[in-house]
């Protein structure tokens, strides 16, 4: 892809990332960190792409290890965040 387009996407994403979490009460710091942590588990997509392109056993082995780790990161991250947030549901006022 054209480098300028990528740079634009990157810079705009930085601003969006800054904006969406600019004001968060400390109560939500932990779930927010955990949720953001789960989102970067989307590296799973990258791991699947490299596994698809793997030709040698070494490449495949490393890619599969990456898939296992990325799946743990993504799925585990969302589940644990949900469990934390479940605790807040009784507090609706």
């Amino acid at each position: 892809m054209d480098a300028m387009a990528i740079l634009s996407i990157f810079v705009l994403s930085v601003f969006v990332g800054f904006e969406v979490v600019s004001k968060v009460s400390s109560t939500l710091h932990t779930p927010l960190m955990s949720g953001a942590n789960a989102i970067h588990g989307v590296i799973l997509v990258g791991a699947i792409i490299v596994a698809d392109h793997s030709e040698t056993n070494l490449e495949l082995g490393l890619s599969l290890a990456a898939i296992v780790l990325a799946t743990i990161n993504m799925v585990g991250g969302f589940v644990v965040t949900d469990r934390m947030l479940e605790m807040f549901k009784g507090q609706k006022k």
Partner: peptide, 8 residues
């Protein structure tokens, strides 16, 4: 996704 997490 990566940039969002990095920035936030």
């Amino acid at each position: 996704a990566g940039t969002l997490v990095g920035a936030s």
